[in-house]
Amino acid sequence: MAALQFIGRLLVAGVLLSGGSQLPASAAPGPASRIILSSHEEGQSKPSVVTLTCDPAGGSHPNPADACAVLAEVSGEFNDIPKQSPDAICPMIWHPVDVTATGRWAGKPVNYSHTFGNDCIKQSELGVVFDF
């Protein structure tokens, strides 16, 4: 095992000495934050799914700049998103909506899931982040 580690270190040193540490243009790093968001309302055959990239804002999310701004305020911690519409009056009808977020925020793994009682509650809690 030690011999394999030694050989690995020699290969890395050789690459570094030969100038091979530079990435080719096609391997340029992507956005610092890339998250796949999904929302599945009871009765729908398939979930709605979008991608959200931040730094720079983009992806298939309909409003990536605002969604990234909300997430930047909480450093990508979905559980810390403040209620987006605190005065919303939602019906007390159980029609569950499951949401998930998976990916990376500023290099940190993101793995969030939550079930809301209905779409109105989801929107009042998470606002633009899950508005798709």
Rank of each mutant, 00 (worst) to 15 (best):
M1F: 14
A2G: 11
A3W: 15
A3T: 14
L4E: 15
F6N: 10
I7H: 12
I7V: 15
G8P: 01
R9D: 11
L10F: 12
L10Q: 14
L11N: 09
V12I: 14
A13Q: 01
A13T: 00
G14I: 04
L17P: 00
S18C: 09
S18N: 13
G19C: 03
S21K: 08
Q22T: 14
L23T: 06
P24N: 07
P24M: 03
A25R: 13
A25K: 13
S26I: 06
S26V: 10
S26T: 09
S26C: 03
A28E: 13
P29W: 11
G30Q: 13
G30F: 12
G30I: 06
G30R: 13
P31V: 03
P31N: 13
A32N: 08
A32W: 04
I35Y: 03
I36M: 12
I36W: 12
I36E: 14
S38R: 09
S38N: 06
S38Y: 07
S39G: 12
E41Y: 09
E41S: 14
G43A: 05
S45R: 00
S45C: 00
P47L: 02
S48N: 12
V49A: 06
V49R: 08
T51A: 04
L52T: 01
T53H: 04
C54Y: 03
C54V: 01
A57N: 08
G58S: 02
H61P: 03
P62Y: 07
N63Y: 09
N63Q: 09
P64S: 07
A65E: 15
C68R: 01
A69W: 02
V70Q: 05
L71R: 02
L71V: 03
L71M: 11
L71I: 03
A72L: 01
V74D: 06
S75N: 14
S75H: 11
S75V: 00
E77N: 15
N79C: 00
D80L: 12
I81T: 02
P82W: 01
K83N: 08
Q84A: 13
D87V: 00
D87Y: 05
C90T: 04
C90I: 05
C90Y: 09
C90K: 05
C90R: 06
M92P: 04
I93F: 13
H95R: 15
H95P: 10
H95W: 15
H95Y: 15
V97R: 02
D98W: 15
G103D: 07
R104Y: 14
W105Q: 01
P109L: 02
P109C: 01
V110S: 01
V110E: 02
N111I: 01
Y112F: 15
H114C: 08
F116T: 01
G117F: 14
N118S: 11
D119V: 14
C120D: 09
C120V: 07
Q123Y: 10
Q123R: 10
G127I: 07
G127A: 08
G127F: 08
G127Q: 09
G127K: 06
G127Y: 08
G127P: 04
V128G: 02
V128P: 02
V128E: 11
V129Y: 07
D131K: 08
D131V: 00
F132T: 03
F132G: 04
